[in-house]
Amino acid sequence: MADLTPVFLCFKWGKGYPCRYTNILYRALTDMMQTPFRFVCLTDDADGLAEGIEAIPLPDFAMDRDDWHKGMWPKLTAFAPGLFLPGTPVIMMDVDVVVLRDLTPLFDHLRTNDGLHIIREIPDTLPRWFPKVFGKPLRSNSSVVGFIAGTQDHLYELFHDKTYADVRHIGNDQNFIHHHARDRHSWPIGWMISFKKDLAFHFPVNLVRPIRRPDTFVVIFHGTPNPEDMTKGPFKRWGSPEKFGYFPVRWIKDYWTTYSRGTDR
């Protein structure tokens, strides 16, 4: 019988995120998941990955390596034919996320709803409060993407032979997915939220109000801060110019401390 065990898929390349981010995500999922899964990392350097992580070489694509970071294009290799048996539920995740509970319902959602599932772009504060004045069409955020293996192979086929010059007008991987995925859907509202846009506070509220642990599956991060930034000691500033803090965020620090076992780099 074919092995269609659900897969969590992530990436490790370049120097943006040390391997400890991948290992922390793997350990968190291992601790929280109530159902069996595989954890696969597409990488050009498997050194330092925790035992239990399946390292698979990045599928080939034409873009020069110097251009990979100009839109996180290697993520489109997740759709390369043959990586997983057709019919396998796959959830592609960025490593700079915080998982807060068992993600089995995400796989159940994939099995009962066709198409590709991606986060609807999360608006900033002003567009959210005053959409008629500051609003713009919302695209997609690829921090968490779900699909069934074999149903979105065309995304890789459309991309793998392209140079950066061919795709730079699209902007990045998530715009490419947004425009070219078949039967694209947004994850249900509230399943994934943004730390920066949904949880962090503007000045001066940020100085007096703690950031509470949300009731969600995954907290995503983009831009600044990164999760690790909020695990430091007091009076270590983190965040963007608009939303920042000077103290650790307790539930993020607890998560990071719990799953940072070992001597990860």
Rank of each mutant, 00 (worst) to 15 (best):
L106F: 13
Y246P: 02
Y156F: 15
V97T: 13
N226A: 04
F11M: 12
R237C: 01
F176W: 11
R265G: 00
Q152W: 15
L76P: 13
L42Y: 09
F244A: 00
V208D: 11
K15N: 05
L158V: 10
V145H: 02
R213F: 11
P248F: 00
L116T: 11
W191Y: 07
R120D: 04
W191R: 05
D108Q: 15
S194K: 06
I122R: 14
L155Q: 02
R212G: 04
F61A: 04
D183C: 09
M32S: 01
W187I: 01
E54H: 10
H222C: 04
H185L: 00
R209Y: 06
K70F: 14
V133I: 06
A46R: 07
M192T: 12
N175C: 05
P214A: 03
K253A: 13
I148Y: 09
A46K: 02
K75E: 13
H179C: 08
G239N: 03
S142E: 15
V208E: 03
T30P: 00
L83Y: 14
T112P: 02
A78E: 15
A62L: 12
S260W: 01
D215W: 15
P57R: 15
T35E: 06
P18N: 09
E51A: 10
P74E: 09
D173Y: 10
M93G: 03
G245Y: 06
D45L: 12
F37Y: 13
R101P: 01
D3H: 10
H160G: 02
H222K: 02
